[in-house]
Amino acid sequence: MKAYTRPILLISIILLVDQISKFWVKLNMLIGQGFNVLGDKFQIHFIENNGMAYGMEFGGEFGKLFLTLFRIIAVAGIGYGLYYMVKNKYHRGFILNVALIFAGALGNILDSTFYGLLFSESTPFEKATLFPADGGYASIFHGKVVDMLYFPLIEGNFPDWFPIWGGEHFLFFRPVFNVADSAISVGVVLILLFQRRYFKEEHVEKESVNSEVLED
């Protein structure tokens, strides 16, 4: 059971921070409202999206339902994979990275599945309420994902000589996202950066086990 402690703790922390931040924003801010945290380079800016991470969209009401159900199936698969990795003593770093991805995916599933039932609609003129008397703004599986982290780090215009976009305005980094999105991104990036270390040790360990079997 000790091997499960760190992944479970990491997942719990990510989910707690993600959901607390979303509840606070949902109950205290209007859609489109924002404020600066570190100058104008880090802002809390409240938006909601019907689709995927970083505000991407996916095809109307049916697309929304399909995406939510697909997420649930995917998270169940990741959860089983995480259990298998811990049980079979995969590299601890790899397990924690997968735990980050699992926590992030689960965090956004909670929005998609339940927020439509729990909250009233957020608008530019009215803040949402929790457990509204008239019911939530959507049915189960049709909730919107709450995003609020915004980092408009560099803004300006491309030089006139720049191909295709010469003279046009640009902004980096444009997407608004949440803690769950961040956990998924960090988990994926760390796996890509350290995959050779993770899987090299697994390969060496398996070779060692196979050698012992042949010697016996």
Rank of each mutant, 00 (worst) to 15 (best):
G81R: 03
H203I: 13
I13S: 06
A105D: 08
K89P: 01
N36Y: 03
T123L: 03
H45E: 02
G63E: 00
Y90G: 02
F170V: 03
L82V: 04
V179G: 06
V186P: 01
D18V: 13
K26T: 13
A180P: 00
N157I: 07
V176L: 01
I140K: 04
K89E: 14
Y83A: 06
F125G: 00
R71Q: 05
F162T: 10
Y150D: 11
R197Q: 15
L110F: 13
R92S: 07
D134F: 05
V204I: 10
D147C: 04
G116M: 09
A99W: 04
A128S: 14
Q43N: 14
Y198M: 10
L130S: 02
G81M: 08
F114G: 03
F23R: 05
F125N: 08
R197P: 00
G77H: 07
Q195A: 07
G51L: 10
L192V: 06
S185W: 01
A99E: 09
G104C: 07
L65K: 13
H91P: 00
H45R: 13
S211M: 10
N49R: 11
L192E: 01
V37Y: 00
L30R: 04
L10E: 05
V188T: 12
K2H: 08
I13W: 03
F114A: 05
D216K: 15
D111N: 08
R6I: 15
F23P: 03
H45Q: 08
S211W: 02
G136H: 00
G34Q: 10
F158T: 06
W24R: 00
K2Q: 10
V86H: 04
L38M: 10
E202I: 14
E155T: 15
I20M: 10
T5Y: 14
T113E: 03
V189A: 12
F125L: 13
H91M: 02
M52C: 12
E57S: 15
F70I: 12
V188S: 11
F23K: 06
Y150H: 12
T5D: 05
L153S: 09
R197G: 14
R174H: 10
M56K: 11
E212H: 11
F141L: 15
Q195G: 03
G55Q: 02
W161D: 06
L65F: 12
I14R: 02
V186L: 13
